[in-house]
């Protein structure tokens, strides 16, 4: 057996892969938070609940309607995105003139309500979601066996993250978004329907969370708490990456997943806290985050 730093190779690579998987979810979730924060100036505390909704919707589609995994990858973000539009139009949009804190409290409340409703309907023990046949099994990479589904999650997450980054940084829609983030009234005075742009941005961020939820469904069991389990770490990721930075959330998300995975190998006791340790250090050295711009 290959040993690396006195650790068996397969163990090291296995934890690295697990780290990458977690990192993929951190990246997708913090990316959505960053997009929403940039445009709405609201810290979307309901993000975890919407991630959970994404997983649940795919479970519901499969078990009630017989709609499988791949259609759910499109349908679930779409449906949860529409739910996001309703949320933004009915409640969140009323808070734009108030302090950030109100948005945070409202979305926190929303997440409790959403999670409570699902707990009521489905209990909190969790329900399995089978890996689609096409992605089951494992591949021998030579140095380790990689479960195909996990490889797919990393690949899909990377693709979605890079696509989101490209839309925001390289397209004219993205230019309008960035401009509206900087000076919304000016963009509106050019003829852009900014309130609609804000609604669609929220829906987009929410759809990203739901997409992550569908990817997560076969890995973690589908249960009402799956979002809250993630979201604390994700907020730490957002703070480390720098509030509102797109590339920052992607790089920090994957990076911290890997750091967490490695910690599990070398010092398992610290694996749950290492992200927060990094957060404390980053905040001390660079309070605006690794990729954050000066205020």
């Amino acid at each position: 057996m290959i040993m690396i730093f006195g650790i068996p190779g397969p163990l090291l690579f296995g934890q690295l892969l697990l780290g990458l998987i977690n990192g993929a979810f951190y990246a997708m979730l913090s990316l959505g938070l960053a997009v929403i924060f940039g445009m709405l100036n609201i810290i979307n505390f309901a993000h975890g609940a919407l991630f959970m909704m994404g997983a649940f919707v795919s479970w519901i589609l499969l078990n009630y309607l017989g709609i499988g995994y791949f259609p759910a990858l499109i349908l679930s973000p779409l449906l949860v995105g529409i739910f996001g539009i309703v949320l933004e139009k009915t409640v969140i949009s009323r808070l734009y003139k108030l302090d950030h804190l109100y948005g945070l409290l409202l979305t926190f409340g929303l997440s409790l309500v959403i999670e409570g409703l699902f707990r009521n309907a489905y209990g909190s023990s969790g329900m399995p979601y089978r890996i689609p046949d096409m992605l089951s099994g494992a591949t021998n990479l030579g140095f380790m066996y990689m479960p195909n589904y996990r490889g797919w999650v990393v690949l899909a997450a990377l693709t979605v993250c890079i696509a989101t980054w490209a839309i925001i940084e390289k397209t004219s829609l993205g230019a309008t978004l960035r401009a509206a983030t900087e000076n919304a009234p000016m963009v509106q005075a050019f003829g852009v329907n900014v309130p609609r742009l804000i609604t669609l941005t929220y829906a987009g961020g929410v759809a990203l969370a739901a997409f992550a939820g569908v990817l997560a469904a076969p890995i973690y069991s589908v249960n009402p708490n799956m979002g809250s389990n993630f979201i604390n770490t994700v907020f730490a990721v957002v703070v480390i990456g720098g509030m509102g930075s797109i590339m920052g959330s992607i790089v920090t998300g994957f990076g911290l997943g890997v750091v967490e995975g490695l910690t599990k190998v070398f010092y398992p006791q610290a694996s749950a806290t290492v992200v927060f340790l990094v957060m404390v250090i980053v905040l001390l050295v660079r309070p605006r985050g690794l990729f954050g711009k000066a205020a």
Binding site: A175, R178, A179, T181, E182, N183, P185, M186, Q188, A189, F190, G191, V192, N193, V194
Partner: peptide, 24 residues
């Protein structure tokens, strides 16, 4: 009307502070 509707009607503004976007 909203500013975006006024712009669509055919009025455009070049504001005093110029309104150039640094992120673009």
């Amino acid at each position: 009307l909203m500013p975006n509707q006024i712009a669509r009607a055919g009025i455009a503004i070049c504001p005093e502070e110029r309104g150039i976007f640094g992120s673009l």
